[in-house]
Nucleic acid binder design. Structure first.
Lengths: 343, 343
DNA sequence: TCCAGACCTCAAAGCGCTTTGGCTTTTCCC
DNA sequence: GGGAAAAGCCAAAGCGCTTTGAGGTCTGGA
């Protein structure tokens, strides 16, 4: 069923039917009602490409997910992020176009997406330290929102939604210090990513303001896998002076830490304390009623919702000022932290 | 830059330029070359909506991800599935449209997608026992491929790519029986899902052919979370006759089992054996060089690739016969299984 | 009664592309 | 050299929608 058919069926012109459906005031309420009913009855939905062609607006946003070619890993938080964003898209009747792009060919991919003209805006995932994508998108003139940030310099010149990574890891480190820990390991994400850099800063800040030093041999950086958590922990435990507490950049890394401690015959929360960062993923809940892991928690799904909302704004009025949302993580006390063991 | 501009620039008609770019034989190689070069140089990409309108083909496939409203969980395997599928889409120059649909409104969502006419085919995720979506899509006449299956009756009447769930769990169970285990717990997924039903069957078959019984109190079914693995395991351990081995439907559930055993002071692979199903997710690798968990393994990313390939075929020639691919899972021996303890 | 102004409705153009059908030029073979 | 076939190119229609500019009808005030 298309507009033409529907309108002849109703004995009206396409114009009138189109206007009735799109809420224009030039059509009487009686007519509008009739049209609406008929549309519903015949399951009519405007052809989205035709509408896009006519209006120049697609009602579609793009999500470009970088695929680390080195590690072949897609960031698992993206599932929940998307789930959050699509709540908004569903409400606003937007579609979501997904592109997974090997990180080598990113620039080209963005240009292509822009040239194809099938999306009204994009959400940028996984920003690196000084991510060229941001300059590129600004140059192209495509509305976008970044999930995360990238560097400091031009932060005010684009919209972003980020978690306060620095502060979260500073608080977590502080918490461990308050418990008496002095040697604290950090299992960070890849430190070419902005979020990892910021977390490292928070960690360092807390140590320094407590008069402690950042020990290189306690700082790891890698793709966040269980295996990484496991092997890095074992390595640290084998040190002359092993850490009494560990900070892990994700709950999955935390699983690996748990397994390593288990293997080493150490009791988690007693012999070694552990704090993880918890993205509050739906399929990786940190416990049901009470938290398992002591964690810094910030819902990535919520971030998805906010990003989507801001992008919608930006699309409907590109002249609107840029928006910046900094979400604070909560510190949640679970069963994996305790006072530093006396030695 | 659009076709018109490009063609006047070249001093050719739109027809010729279009044909040159799309590889039609009516244009000389010399001209084609010139056109190609100019297109590249000016970064010309055909407007995808316009092309869609003209051809009726969108070069876009839809993925409809069900969101369990009851549990608010998006299946985490879908990240890797998508990554696999997009390798194919990238190669074939297809786009991917994503829709996350609360499971209550699925039928409506599919109809809407069809009416909008923005995709040439869809991939159906997470089929339930007798999934109405399949009949619906056939009625609508939209090409589709199911990741998984749904019931037995009409399996030959649509294309699907599935893992041999029954056989995988039968083998795993058999393996445990061979190790001397007699009481084997099953932490299954939600048993309204086809895959979970099939796994249960495999488990039961192996028990029965070994002359054992399926004990109701050892069979769990739920959304596959870490917490579920933890609490179900604790419950089973509290039984009068606890299991000596556990089968978990995902590696995440396996993490929970590990934690429970840890809490109970039991040694995994010694006091209690564990086999998990491993979807070979990029961010949840079951160990690096050697596997950690004994597991049935089948790459969901591979399944994504195959689904996408079949869908491409189906779209380019809808009369082609349906295809059915049944992937066999390997049984991988890790460190979580051992002989049943003497009691 | 007449006309301005609301109020509705419509025909047609245009979005950027593909494709049909036709035209001109070249090539080939007898 | 002549005719037919092949090669190369083009104008124009059409995909389904929105939107402009114009027209028709109805009301109410002068």
């Amino acid at each position: 069923m298309n507009l033409k058919e529907l309108s002849t069926l109703l004995g009206l012109s396409q114009t009138t039917v189109s206007r009735a459906l799109n809420g224009y005031p030039e059509v009487s309420e009686v007519t509008r009602d009739k049209v609406m009913k008929a549309a519903k009855q015949h399951n009519y939905t405007p052809n989205i490409r035709a509408r896009g062609l006519a209006t120049g607006r697609n009602h579609t946003v793009g999500h470009v997910i970088p695929l680390s070619t080195e590690h072949e890993v897609v960031n698992p938080v993206f599932t929940d992020f998307i789930a959050g964003a699509s709540e908004i898209y569903a409400r606003e009747n937007y579609d979501m176009m997904l592109t997974i792009v090997p990180d080598k060919t990113e620039a080209e991919a963005y240009r292509k997406i822009a040239a194809k003209g099938s999306v009204d805006g994009v959400i940028v995932h996984g920003p690196k330290a000084n991510d060229p994508r941001i300059a590129l998108l600004r140059e192209i003139g495509m509305p976008f929102v970044v999930h995360g940030r990238s560097g400091i310099a031009e932060e005010s010149e684009y919209s972003w939604v980020d978690m306060n990574n620095t502060r979260a890891f500073e608080r977590a480190t502080q918490f461990l210090i308050d418990l008496g820990h002095r040697r604290i390991g950090l299992l960070n994400g890849l430190e070419n990513m902005d979020f990892a850099i910021k977390r490292r800063e928070g960690y360092r800040d807390a140590l320094i303001s407590a008069g402690l030093k950042e020990h290189k041999e306690l700082c790891y950086s890698s793709e966040m896998t269980e295996e990484y958590g496991f092997s890095a922990t074992l390595e640290m435990l084998a040190l002359h002076k092993p850490p009494t507490a560990i900070l892990a950049s994700s709950i999955i890394v935390g699983f690996g830490v748990r397994r390593a401690l288990d293997t080493a015959g150490l009791k988690i929360g007693k012999d070694v304390s552990l704090i993880v960062h918890d993205d509050d993923l739906s399929y990786l809940r940190n416990g049901a009623a009470e938290p398992i892991y002591t964690a810094t928690r910030s819902s990535v799904r919520m971030a998805g919702r906010i990003c989507a909302e801001i992008l919608m704004e930006q699309i409907s009025d590109p002249k609107r000022p840029m928006r910046h949302v900094l979400l604070d993580a909560e510190l949640i006390i679970g069963h994996t932290t305790g006072p530093a063991p006396k030695s």
